[in-house]
């Protein structure tokens, strides 16, 4: 009984891990972000996102693991447009993880919110639970017009009908960096060694990615920036993406 209670206690802890092996996190500086959407295409290219076609867009069944949301503020002529890239926040208390009946989505030891395609049975419950609406469901098996399929990234599964998918923080790149580290006889991945496709492409260097367990990593330092905030923080999902809000001009 006591053992059971201990186990329960452990699961009640955020993320139910004593300590994460790595704790991957990201910061996005909205003062640098211009909303150019280079990251969106980078993600599409890296992660084999399907070309869904006009009809599916009409049905709002597009798949973009990373999208740029836009919000207008004010009215003409004193009007502003603000952009915010929205992707899976890899929450440490992810609402999407609890309802999955087959544990196809869970938190792993690196603090990543996983999505295991071959385990997923397509109940779509996780997508309903996600407050950020960053989970996308494959309503169809999408085809690539020949020879566009030659572009597909062999390191990433091509998903088919009935499977939920979402941002993985480019798990294939994390895996590769760990592989390189092992080749060099290192236990740990160096800071800056893993760059997800979106971070790599960003023309204004608005995104920073790294290990939050390492206090000297760039992302840990950016985390402490006073402009930092988390989206929908009040839901206590403990999102791992910190946005740095747009600064005011001191001129």
């Amino acid at each position: 009984m006591g053992k059971m209670r201990d186990k329960l206690k452990q699961y009640l802890k955020p993320g139910y891990y004593e300590k994460y092996d790595y704790h991957w996190g990201m910061t996005i500086d909205l003062d640098r972000c211009t909303g150019c959407e280079a990251c969106v295409v980078a993600c599409q290219a890296e992660n084999n996102l399907p070309i869904v076609g006009e009809k599916r867009f009409k049905e709002r069944r597009e798949i973009k693991w990373l999208r740029v949301e836009r919000y207008w503020e004010g009215e003409y002529p004193n009007i502003k447009l603000r952009f915010i890239p929205m992707l899976c926040q890899h929450c440490d208390q992810a609402p999407c993880e609890t309802p999955c009946p087959v544990a196809a989505t869970y938190h792993n030891q690196d603090g990543l919110n996983t999505q295991i395609y071959n385990r997923c049975i397509g109940t779509r419950t996780c997508a309903v639970y996600c407050p950020y609406e960053v989970r996308y469901f494959n309503w169809f098996t999408y085809k690539w017009d020949e020879p566009l399929e030659q572009q597909l990234n062999p390191d990433v599964t091509v998903r088919e009908k009935g499977v939920m998918e979402k941002c993985t923080f480019c798990i294939q790149r994390i895996r590769q960096a760990k592989d390189h580290a092992k080749d060099d006889g290192r236990r740990r991945v160096r800071d800056g060694e893993v760059t997800p496709a979106c971070v790599q492409s960003c023309p204004t260097k608005a995104m920073v990615f790294g290990d939050l367990n390492d206090p000297n990593s760039r992302v840990s330092k950016m985390y402490k920036n006073p402009r930092g905030y988390k989206v929908l923080e009040e839901l206590n999902t403990l999102p791992k993406i910190v946005y740095l809000k747009k600064a005011d001009s001191d001129v």
Binding site: D21, Y106, N108, Q109, D110, L112, T114, I116, Y117, N118, R119, D155, V156, T157, T168, I171, Q172, R175
Partner: peptide, 11 residues
Amino acid sequence: ENGRDCWTCHK
């Protein structure tokens, strides 16, 4: 190490 984590082998 992490040998039972899904993401070690599933891509």
